[in-house]
Design a protein around this nucleic acid. Sequence first.
DNA 1: GCGACGATTCGTCTAGCATCGAAATATGGA
DNA 2: TCCATATTTCGATGCTAGACGAATCGTCGC
Lengths: 232, 232
Amino acid sequence: MDVDESDAPVSSIAAAIGEPARARMLYCLLDGRARTATELAVVADVAPSTTSAHLQRLEKQRLVKVVVQGKHRYYSLESADVAAALEALSVLAGRSAPALVPNTPDRLHAARTCYDHIAGTLGVLLHDRLKELDWLSTAGDREYDLTRAGVTGLEALGVDVDATRALRRRFATACLDWSERRYHLAGALGAALLAIALRRKWIVRDLDSRILTVTPVGRRELERRIGLDAPR
Amino acid sequence: MDVDESDAPVSSIAAAIGEPARARMLYCLLDGRARTATELAVVADVAPSTTSAHLQRLEKQRLVKVVVQGKHRYYSLESADVAAALEALSVLAGRSAPALVPNTPDRLHAARTCYDHIAGTLGVLLHDRLKELDWLSTAGDREYDLTRAGVTGLEALGVDVDATRALRRRFATACLDWSERRYHLAGALGAALLAIALRRKWIVRDLDSRILTVTPVGRRELERRIGLDAPR
DNA sequence: GCGACGATTCGTCTAGCATCGAAATATGGA
DNA sequence: TCCATATTTCGATGCTAGACGAATCGTCGC
């Protein structure tokens, strides 16, 4: 019977979605951003160990994918098809889905912190601009180093390159940005840049979120110093 | 938390689909046709009592709807949205869905039996033609009777109207056709018409399905006698 | 009315699975 | 090197829900 062949995977996929804790995780990921296992544990309101089991199942059913970055594991929806299926189910639930749209509103694109460095649109633009200026050179898998021009340029911005390099931490790495699906600059250098931008009030931090706002001063300085016109 | 509000129904809906037996039923109904509880029990490969419980749940989640017709209960998908969700899940399962499209292939539109009468495209066309000829008069909710012209005409086709009417069975009723979403003729009269068509080889029955095929002779006779040009 | 049949209800059994805590593993940063 | 943190593995527990059979209800057809 071809019926068996075609509905067996479907039912197990639907069953994977059909568990409250897992559904909460999936709908949390519906905005296209990735979350760590710990974040999802909070969202799902279950213990980390339980979350781990759930995530394994979701991964096995190819509903989510994981990218290991350091000691974090970033989970995100496996594909747009998964989002489409979740939306279709939302329709049945009698409400319009949160909808994963190509151009998501400001909240996702906006500048924001990623732990200790700049992510979001601004982070991606900054990363791209630094490469465009040829300040960054690739030094391995998702690893960067500074070119001579880069050292000079960043020193001019106020970064103590030697001190930053001295930190026993990866110097400069590419960090995949989940709202932009592109890389931004992380590592000690990324953290140093954020610190300087904050100290000089080029950027201000939102009180209870990761949102960053570029100040008028910051916008002017970023334009003048590295030819970057910040979004919004 | 609005998360709880929005994912609670979704997870229960997904859970309703995420059970092998129920998934088999739903995918069986994906062709748009309705099935009786017994038929679905066979498809799902579970006992009638188990099937009943499953169908109740599917109905409660508004995934299927039921129409009571005599001692049969006809279950069908609640809406096109349900089909869409099932298709979306099929995509995730890595195969193209059987797809419930407005114009489904021959199998669904083709002439077929509905218990003991003619359904499918041919059944609907026949029903409409008989009303067009004014052989049928409405005699209640989904009930028909024959007009004087109808008696004459059907007698000419070989139907023993008195004998048919004598059967202690509803004489002529409208039966909703699930592939066409329109009515066809059921009841003793519908059965009599099928019997005659089969006896005269205007139509032949498929061996192991409900498919009916109109023979060249049948096509010619239907055209000549009642001005009906059979499909295909 | 009286079988025959379709379908549901009820009671019970069982198995799978979601859950947690504790311990183990891995990685980054000092 | 060592600690802190993120995450997984393992084992035990408890609940849910899917399964069936027997009995009941309701409708058709004679």
